[in-house]
Design a protein around this nucleic acid. Sequence first.
DNA 1: TTGAAAGCGATACCAG
DNA 2: CTGGTATCGCTTTCAA
Lengths: 363, 363
Amino acid sequence: MPRKADVPARRDVRLKDVANVAGVHPATVSRALDPGKMWLVRPETRARVQSVARDLGYRGDAVARSLRRGQTTTVGVIVADLSLTFLAPVVRGLTDALERRGFMAVISETQDDHERLRASVENLLSRRVDGIVVTAARLGDGPVLEEVAAERPVVLAVRTLAGTTIPSITSDDVAGGYLAAKHLAELGHQRIAQLQGPPDVQPFVDRRRGFMHGVEDFGLELVSMDETAIHPTPSEGQRLMRMLLGEGQPTPTAVFAHNDSMAIGALAAIRAAGLACPADVSVIGYNDAPLVEHLDPPLSTIAFPGESIGRFAGELVIALIEESSSRVASMTFPPELVARASTAPPAGERRRRRTNSKGARNG
Amino acid sequence: MPRKADVPARRDVRLKDVANVAGVHPATVSRALDPGKMWLVRPETRARVQSVARDLGYRGDAVARSLRRGQTTTVGVIVADLSLTFLAPVVRGLTDALERRGFMAVISETQDDHERLRASVENLLSRRVDGIVVTAARLGDGPVLEEVAAERPVVLAVRTLAGTTIPSITSDDVAGGYLAAKHLAELGHQRIAQLQGPPDVQPFVDRRRGFMHGVEDFGLELVSMDETAIHPTPSEGQRLMRMLLGEGQPTPTAVFAHNDSMAIGALAAIRAAGLACPADVSVIGYNDAPLVEHLDPPLSTIAFPGESIGRFAGELVIALIEESSSRVASMTFPPELVARASTAPPAGERRRRRTNSKGARNG
DNA sequence: TTGAAAGCGATACCAG
DNA sequence: CTGGTATCGCTTTCAA
């Protein structure tokens, strides 16, 4: 049992109580306790009020304040799934930026489901959040979000949306895809492929585009596969990689998985096929999620500054909240190649010397 | 610019507006829209009101409702750091349980700092959350949390606190530690050690205790090292492992790291010392965090049902909120050994086994 | 079955 | 510099 020390464990103390004890009007207490208005109160009174408030253990009622002020100092954060490890830094930067400014994050998961996104948004709006940061936008979500953005600040983070006017803080996924192709080309790969993420998520579209540019620019041969992952998960990555290895086409010597999760699945598929990475097939992922540097082999990947993106998204949404007329400024951060052991030069020479028939090892 | 379709993008629609259009009193609208009270309204009126509400795009104001009802249907969730990957399933289960019951999670990070925990709690209370789930409790936090628990439902998850009356949902870390020792003993290890997490976090204390029990029960030799990690991170794990390898004492053939992060650091230290895992030293971690199965080598570890723990914590806090008299029921879930490639019989044992095995070929 | 009226707790404008 | 007073939007007795 906790001690009921000096702080009365009684029912919540209200402004009026403080006023009574301090012998002043509630309005005065309100002013004396508001950092932005306490200068209106005579120092003596202010001190007395503050001391009484402290003694009574007074804790402002944010609900009442919100009702009166029409501001909740709360921001809704919509994520597809908190288990997505690459989101951790983003959410970290975001919540940090928010807390630093006195805002709190209320988090809602959508599992990348349109309906759930709609429900989340509705829920958040009815809770009167001052703004919303969406990291889980998918293609069809445009209209809903635009509608919301008409009444409240909305910021897209990580995932932008084609042809939207909603400001977004992202990394340049086209550049990232290009970087992946460039890396593979520089290692000497000629025949490469990509494991594509869901095409209704803008970053995947962009990564694809960037990668294709690279393929052209560097004169690579693309083992094309139109199939895309239903979800960007290890199991889907495994499925696509299996397809790729099983196709009639020649096996690529390197693949670009649109994210690290799919890359992990790809590694599994490669092993399952009796091949080795990077000896037989190089693999590069995307996101530089936590731990992928410790994988077997350590995963080459494209990193983006998640924490910064989260932080800026937080700051932007607050800016929009505080001066809603603010110019809509999107930001794009450059991604970065992180070369590790899962990518290496192709074993082309050796293989070519031994046999001319490609794919002979796909047992 | 979004279309201002049928839904008036005007200022928020209030209850009164609906009442006016529907030609009834606001109180009637309130009743007609409250699932728990709509039976008080004549079906015709109800239908009309609901239809008007829909047409106007009416969205209840949760802030006003909260003020009036003294309930926010909001639960504070305190975590040390959202980047802790083993928390992802916990938070997942938690938010899912909450949303399912119409509650929302507001998340606050403490970075395992006492002051920040205090501030978080204060902030959450002033926002009038209906309850709090704490996954970041450390030893000194008892008093603060007890005090809070006296006014509002508080539930500890993942980390319990010694000698507290606050209900907690955890896994049995003593059993987990024991399991680790047992696993190593069964593999034939004789000389083992542990990399200890911070002693002011109950789970680490328990894992240590359980491990020690196991050491005794199985008659193992413990290479003891009193040093504990400042934070349970890879770098600290690496530091401790380095110390262990450098000491005057004989090198253990297996170590139990109090969590996966430290285990990862340990693996690095082992490599850095020119040794191999599991050939020279076996390593077992704790948590079965996402991806550790893909490490090099795949990490043996002790798993706990994070999602269930989160889910039950959510359900418990809601139960406490709804019937605050409810009996305080803590729950403990059993952990489970997940044996992977980072643990194997010790070098000597392997040889001996080969020699002694029936049908040995070198006879 | 519906209406009237009283707040929930805090803030902000207007007087004094 | 401080007190009065009117809401903020909704829920909930209490009457009718």
